[in-house]
Write a protein that binds this DNA or RNA. Structure first.
Lengths: 227, 227, 227, 227
DNA sequence: GATGAATGAGAGTTCATTCAT
DNA sequence: GATGAATGAACTCTCATTCAT
């Protein structure tokens, strides 16, 4: 049976005299709902394991809409990937590191990496899945190809400033430093389940997360600090 | 890793000069062939994306044999996972770190982690896939539950010895050190494809790998070293 | 039993003169078609021997639809079983025995049993198959568990009335009488093929059926009649 | 692994001085074991539902042996069917009815039918399955085609004798009487599971069986008795 | 914009049967 | 006579996708 109207659409808009608060058909909102549901599904099951039906259901949408807006499962997957990357880059761009003291900037960046992983738990399985597939879809993306990663340049400037003032030792490759900063947080979150199983101990408890966050900072600072 | 021929084919008799792949009728060898093929397929496609037919073909075996020996696709996946873990643990156990000087032991361990990732390129996507699934299969494994990870204990002893002789600073958590040592190598290999795409630069070239290996050692040593 | 067209197709509109079998897009009707085809297939081959493809083909439907509507082969089998049982119970309920004279009521019931077997030739192999499986699926059915068999109660009343008026002898167990009434017809139809083979004679000819029908009545009446 | 010795091989023959009591390889015995296992499996699952592996396992034999001795699953099924029929006919032939008084002979026969069903619980599902298949295999059997059913002739003689002495009423068709005698017992056993489920009551309890046995006799005697 | 019905290709799995020893 | 390994065909079931409304 066709459901006659969705009871809770988000945007109130112009309140028509109807009992229903808003119009049922909202293209933008439907697309967001689908993307959200798809992100969860792809993150948890991977591209191949994800089910189009599940996504549609979870989105409270019809399967047909999914194809209408995104073309195919793979295209939807790519859209999810792009959205996640764009959001991350955007957040990175908003980081204002250059006005901090060099060591503080480094610490800030490490903490940012950690906090972002923590705040966006779907990002990691999403990336992991894409890596298993050899970045096949990422490479295909126009949007992402043009989105340069400026963070390494920022790091280079920070390192230079630190060397200038003598707080940061010379000879550090900013790219590999960036990788290490990412690695310390990412690996912890990405492999938490197998590691927890291996050690028979929940590594994702609140307390453990605090410990890990500090540890990440310590490792990186020990590496960059002069002396 | 895929062995080209079973070292203990039952009929030793007259060694035929045949290349391979006539129907073998050697249970042990057939199972190994299937495991090898499955490892490649699962690593590259994930559990859901892997195709049973492909595995059978690549193994030079009949699809039926796969079920004959392993029961189901999922069971085969678990068998692959178990074999990989067991092999890794076994290699770790053969590391003889305690007779080295503490800092050398740490360095040795970091290098070992890196080299193992490098030498077993299927291990990483395999683990990544299992992590995406929340270690679902790993948890289910009897074999792996009982296989304790003693490496952390070894690290603890090394750290203690280093503190004793004054070369290693106090206050280091051996577990988190282990995670960092793993992270520095693992992340590099696990995310190489997306990172390469992002930076528009092949991070897995021979030269880059040498650089990264040294970097990993530097980061960890900087963290543990006294002063 | 297989209805050639659904009586309540949704689009009543302009009655097209089409014969049948263009893709119908009528959920109710498709389900009925599948049930009808499945009934034939299950009755003739048993649950294990039945082929899902055959059912779909015969239903003029896609194999996928079968799973879409019924979930699995076993669930479809159960649905067929339930429908057959419900139809039978419904027909029984419409029998109006209590207003007949007791002996006539008995006769009427025996004839009904016979006629029902005759009119629903798929019912018997269906039941036979389910009995071979130990009523496994019947027991599992919610719908059937709650459907009480009131016929035995009706028989009890009829017997009481007959005893009252002296036409029926006392001491008759209504349940076992019901079983005997069923047995006389059911066995004849259920075992007709092996018996025909054994006796080298077609027991299902028109003439034989008339003879048997009368015989069933005679046996039961002889048993219940007073004197 | 080859079983080293069967503890109870039928043909003990000349006891050889060996420690093993008898030879391991016993064609006759293996065949019987296979037939026994097959009977159980076919009776419980039907021809299509039966599994060749299960039969071989239960027989303590190798699957290959099954094909060696019986050719195919279908041939094995037929062999089982033939053995069961032959045994039944043989037992019937050993019934010595003609020296009994007519009514006693009838009673004896009804009881025999009941007791045979009770004593050979596999017979009924076996027959039921074959009936579902339209006696396909039975018809194909050479052995059974030539095995005439003489029981009806015996019944005719008994009826004649009874009419002669006035204890049995005239006009009874011996074939249909035979069918009724069979029906009363067979239906009870064949449909016990669905009936028990329907009535929510175990119809196969020891007590119920006794009641039913007497009931069967009563029904048939009421039908044949003069007056 | 939205929906339920429908589909074809192909996935995992099972099975009776045969081969090599 | 007996066995474990191997096979191909076929089966049930799934999935992304499209059609008709």
């Amino acid at each position: 049976m066709p459901l006659t109207a969705s009871p809770k659409s988000k945007k109130g808009g112009p309140t028509k005299g109807k009992t229903r608060l808003e119009p049922v058909r909202d293209a933008e909102r439907t697309q967001q709902m689908i993307l959200n549901a798809a992100e969860v599904e792809f993150a948890n099951k991977g591209l191949a394991g994800a089910r189009v039906d599940v996504i549609a259901d979870q989105a409270g949408a019809n399967k047909r809409m999914l194809y209408y807006y995104f073309g195919s499962k793979e295209d939807l997957y790519l859209a999810v990937l792009e959205r996640a990357y764009i959001a991350m880059r955007q957040t990175e761009r908003e980081l204002n590191l250059t006005h901090l003291k060099p060591l503080e900037a480094i610490q800030r960046l490490v903490e940012f990496k950690f906090d972002y992983c923590q705040a966006h738990p779907l990002m990691i399985p999403l990336l992991a899945g894409e890596n298993v597939l050899g970045a096949k879809y990422l490479k295909r993306s126009r949007k992402l190809r043009d989105m340069n990663l400026s963070l390494v340049e920022v790091i280079r400037k920070v390192l230079d400033a630190g060397m200038e003032e003598g707080t940061i030792r010379p000879g550090i490759d900013p790219l590999h430093l960036y990788l290490s900063m990412s690695a310390e947080s990412y690996f912890y979150f990405s492999n938490a389940t197998t590691l927890s199983a291996t050690f028979g101990r929940n590594l994702l408890s609140e307390a453990e997360q605090q410990i890990r966050r500090k540890h990440c900072v310590d490792v990186i600072l020990a590496y960059v600090r002069a002396n």
